[in-house]
Structures are given as C-alpha cells and as structure tokens.
C-alpha cells in the first residue's frame, strides 16, 4: 500500500475498531443510566462526561501512564508479551475513550424518553431484560442510536491529541490522517496535508447532513 493511502486505510480501520468497542459498551451504559435511578448514577454520569471535558493530551497522558511498560495494566500485558503503546491498538484505545461519551450522550436522552409503560407491558408479556433492551428500547430509540454511532465514529476518526501521545506518529504504523496532516504541514508538504483534509471534511459534511436528517425525521414523527 502506498504511503499516501496508508493513513486513510489506517484511520478507517482504527475508527471501525473503536466503534466495535464503544457500541456495545456505550449502549449498555446509556441504558443503565436511563433505565432507573441507582446509587452510582451521578458518579457514572460524571465519569462518562470526563473524556469530553479533559484536554486530549491529558487523556493521552493517563493512557500512557496506565498502559505504559511500568503502568498497572502495561506491566501485566508486558508479562504476557503484549505491548500496546505505540501500536495501532493504542490508537484504537485512544479513539474509543474519546468516542465513548459522544455515543452515550447522544443515545441516553432517547432511551430515557421510552415510555415506562411500554417497558412494563413488555415485562408482563414475558420479555426478560435482554429482550426488553433489544425489542423495545433499541427499536424505540433507533434514530438516536444511528446518530450516536455515526457521531462516535467521526469522533474516533478525528482523534489527535491522545493518539499522538499514546500511539505516537510512526509512519506506516500509527500515522492516522489527523496525525499525518500535522506532520505533513510541519514538513511544509501542504499538498499532502490537503488530501487528508479533504477526506476528513468530506466525511464531516456527510455526517452533518445525515445527523440533521435524523433530527428532522424525529421532529416530524414526534409532532
């Protein structure tokens, strides 16, 4: 694969992998928070928000600390012969961390809006918790779920700060598009940078259009 195409391919792979991590986890946490009040609700809410508020470099710093060779998780992985830091896996982790709150925040209000009576009826009809989630909650909130997944994907695609610190900028290994834009710009290779800028702008415009269509449809269906 040419050095020009590799960052596009890598970014897509990293973003899809991050989505595969974030989707089940994010939908589960959103439902956990939406379904009923529990003792840790506020704490979990704050914890979910944190990656959205913290500067990406701070997240990167924490990830290096946790997954680095001397970090609590990194040390265990090192014993198993696995190294995460400065690999594409690190880029996936960094992207997952920042994309997670995007999904939860997009989906949680829609899950909270599922009428309690629908869920109560479902339970009385013999649906267990899993069936209630898939057959009632997800089906009622599917528009927001799609919007949330798309937004999370785009956030993962655009991850820069945490990836830079945790995955490094190794050409042919971890140089995702956002990192490559920065590197190319610094080397005064503006044309190369422009290619990736164009790709990311294209994805962003497409996403914005999709998201606005989803909100318009929701407004129509609720009126």
């Amino acid at each position: 694969m040419s050095a020009l195409v590799f960052p596009i391919y890598l970014s897509a792979m990293v973003a899809f992998a991050a989505l595969a991590v974030v989707a089940p986890l994010g939908l589960f946490v959103a439902w956990l928070q939406a379904s009923r009040p529990h003792r840790w609700r506020r704490l979990v809410d704050a914890a979910v928000m944190l990656p959205m508020i913290l500067p990406p470099t701070v997240i990167g710093f924490f990830l290096v600390f946790v997954f680095g060779r001397h970090g609590p998780v990194g040390r265990v992985l090192e014993l198993l012969g696995v190294r995460v830091i400065f690999t594409p896996a690190a880029a996936v982790i960094a992207s997952s961390v920042v994309a997670f709150p995007v999904l939860v925040k997009a989906v949680q209000p829609a899950m909270e809006a599922v009428p309690r009576e629908l869920i109560d009826v479902g339970r009385s009809l013999g649906l267990g918790p899993r069936a209630v989630f898939f057959r009632i909650v997800l089906r009622s909130a599917w528009r927001s779920v799609i919007t949330g997944l798309v937004l999370a994907f785009v956030r993962a695609l655009g991850e820069f700060g945490a990836t830079m610190m945790f995955a490094g900028m190794i050409p042919g290994v971890t140089n995702t598009m956002p990192l490559e834009i920065f590197a190319a710009y610094q080397r005064a290779e503006d044309e190369r940078a422009l290619l990736y800028v164009a790709v990311l702008v294209g994805v962003a415009v497409l996403t914005a259009m999709l998201a606005s269509r989803a909100t318009a449809a929701r407004r129509e269906s609720s009126s």
Binding site: D120, R123, S124, L125, G126, L127, G128
Partner: peptide, 9 residues
C-alpha cells in the same frame, strides 16, 4: 420477576 409472573397487563 415480572416476566416470570404470567400476569397480563
């Protein structure tokens, strides 16, 4: 649990 009660609601 409600889904094991067999009560129509």
């Amino acid at each position: 649990l409600p889904h094991e009660r067999g009560i129509g609601y």
